[in-house]
């Protein structure tokens, strides 16, 4: 193995490969570099004040927007996971009412564009000014802030997607496992809780981490109801100072940073969960 042993036992059968010059490959490579260089050139010479982008990158208003974007993502995911798990159980239930309701919910909320949901929740007071019964009446207008509308819209949308992920996870657990659980006298719920769900987690967590990353980007739709998220504050800033592209780049950089960080975390989670079993 070592250089020494090679010299002691010269091996005439080894092959030393060289890379031969290939004109086509070289030209294709040069073309790629040229395209990238041209794009960089356009951005560098365009009507853009890069210094402004830098200046706004850590502006406290932008940072607040980043905070809201993260908050929306986390809240919507937490509610979405809980709701999606219930929906998944409903979809697998033999109770025809819950089965139909859950499947209907998933079909409906996956069909509606998220932006429509956000607008509907934001304007819900128009058709539902008060909710409650008897003396307990709630003025919907005073409750449904952009914040609440944003969380509800994102979470209810997410729940539909999580329902399918959880269901796929549960279905991915060998049928024999729930039979074995039932054979030692567990009820359906006990077998779900102690046997099926713990094993389904392995299948559920990686796609859920990916959902979180999509969610980070989807929160930007909250801009249509002015929900204080990163894109909303970005838009407010540039409508005042007209540094449109500079500020959009600020937002783009932050989305990129968040997605890269959480994408890396998701990758670690995935590795961890694939290692078990």
């Amino acid at each position: 193995m070592t250089a020494e042993s090679t010299s002691t036992y010269p091996n005439d059968w080894t092959i030393k490969y060289h890379r031969q010059f290939n004109l086509r490959r070289t030209l294709v490579g040069i073309l790629g570099i040229a395209v990238v260089a041209y794009i960089v050139f356009l951005f560098a010479t365009g009507n853009l004040q890069w210094s402004k982008t830098l200046a706004y990158l850590f502006d406290y208003r932008i940072l607040t927007g980043v905070g809201y974007t993260l908050l929306y993502s986390v809240l919507a995911m937490v509610i979405g996971i809980a709701g999606g798990s219930l929906l998944a159980i409903g979809m697998m239930s033999r109770n025809i009412v819950w089965n139909t309701l859950s499947k209907g919910y998933v079909a409906l909320f996956r069909a509606l564009p998220l932006i429509i949901l956000l607008l509907i929740f934001y304007n819900i007071a128009i058709f539902l000014p008060y909710i409650g019964f008897g003396p307990f009446q709630l003025n919907v207008n005073s409750v449904v802030t952009p914040f609440l509308a944003a969380v509800l819209g994102l979470a209810l949308h997410e729940a539909a997607y999580m329902a399918e992920i959880v269901r796929a996870g549960v279905n991915g657990v060998n049928r024999g496992q729930s039979q074995a659980a039932e054979a030692i006298g567990m009820t359906y719920w006990q077998s779900l809780r102690s046997v099926v769900f713990p094993q389904a987690t392995r299948l559920i967590v990686p796609p859920t981490a990916n959902q979180f990353i999509s969610m980070l980007k989807n929160t930007s739709l909250v801009v249509v109801i002015a929900g204080n998220d990163l894109l909303t504050v970005t838009k407010e800033l540039y409508s005042n100072n007209f540094l449109t592209i500079e500020l959009l780049f600020v937002a783009a950089i932050w989305y990129l940073v968040m997605v890269l960080i959480f994408g890396w975390l998701a990758h670690l989670i995935e590795l961890r969960f694939n290692r078990g079993a």
Partner: peptide
């Protein structure tokens, strides 16, 4: 008591 061909122990 049921003993399965594929054991079906709980892997977790």
């Amino acid at each position: 008591g049921f003993v399965f061909q594929q054991f079906q122990l709980f892997p977790h």
